[in-house]
């Protein structure tokens, strides 16, 4: 089986497991919505909420990312799935990109829902001139979070106490995405700056995605060999 076939197979399997178990749909997505409502309770100022809605969207995405990554590797641990994949001769880099691909699809849906929620709950407005920036930022953030999430999820997979360790490891690392995506979405929604000011920030997120995509391709093997 070629590299691409195995990556595709892994991605399809992960998404199928999610679709059948409905955990992402029935638990993670509602959790993200609850976080958005809680932000509203905490901030309690409609004009401020609208101004900071880009940051709240990205923050809610990151909290949900922790749950999705956790979930993606619980599936691997059960029934020794990692061992089976190893025996089947799946290359670690294909496993990495397969899992990252499935996670990216979940994150893309999640962020779209969060944007709609921000429009409904925080009165955020999508301006027509910002749509292109918004879409590119959405894609870049999705890939960035999916790669770094898969990499650090692999690091913590199979170890005791990893549920509590993952946030400590992952949240500091995704700080550049939080900064970049928030500024870019601010520009795209016209919340604080002009639309053109947002592009460098999207670039920052894209660089992050490339760095951790490459890092994950190289490092995923040594990381998960332990657990196999």
């Amino acid at each position: 089986m070629s590299w691409l076939d195995s990556a595709w197979l892994i991605a399809r399997r992960d998404l199928l497991v999610e679709w059948r178990s409905r955990v992402a749909l029935n638990q993670v997505l509602p959790f993200a919505a609850v976080v958005m409502v809680m932000f509203g309770f905490a901030i309690d100022d409609t004009s401020l909420m609208r101004r900071i809605s880009p940051g709240l969207i990205v923050l809610a995405t990151m909290f949900s990312l922790l749950l999705l990554v956790e979930r993606a590797f619980v599936v691997e641990r059960e029934d020794g799935a990692l061992d089976a994949l190893h025996i089947a001769g799946i290359r670690p880099s294909a496993l990495f990109w397969g899992k990252a691909g499935a996670l990216a699809v979940e994150l893309a849906v999640l962020q779209a829902v969060l944007l709609v929620l921000a429009v409904v709950l925080y009165n955020a407005e999508v301006v027509p001139s910002g749509v292109a920036l918004l879409v590119v930022t959405w894609l870049a953030t999705t890939v960035a979070l999916a790669t770094v999430g898969t990499l650090y999820g692999g690091l913590a997979a199979g170890a005791r106490g990893r549920e509590t360790l993952l946030p400590l490891l992952l949240l500091p690392v995704v700080a550049p995405v939080l900064i970049g995506a928030t500024r870019a979405v601010e520009a795209a929604l016209g919340a604080k700056q002009a639309v053109t000011d947002g592009w460098p920030w999207t670039g920052l997120v894209a660089v992050f995605a490339v760095v951790f995509g490459a890092g994950g391709t190289l490092a995923f093997g040594p990381l998960i060999e332990d657990e196999m």
Binding site: L151, L155, A159, L169, P172, V173, A175, P176, I179, G180, L204, V207, F208, V211, F212, G215, A219, P222, L223, E225, D226
Partner: peptide, 21 residues
Amino acid sequence: RRSGVLALLAVLEIPLVHFSV
């Protein structure tokens, strides 16, 4: 192996964090 990979990832991450901040 785990901590070694993490230490090298930190070398990737720190310039990114510094630059973005």
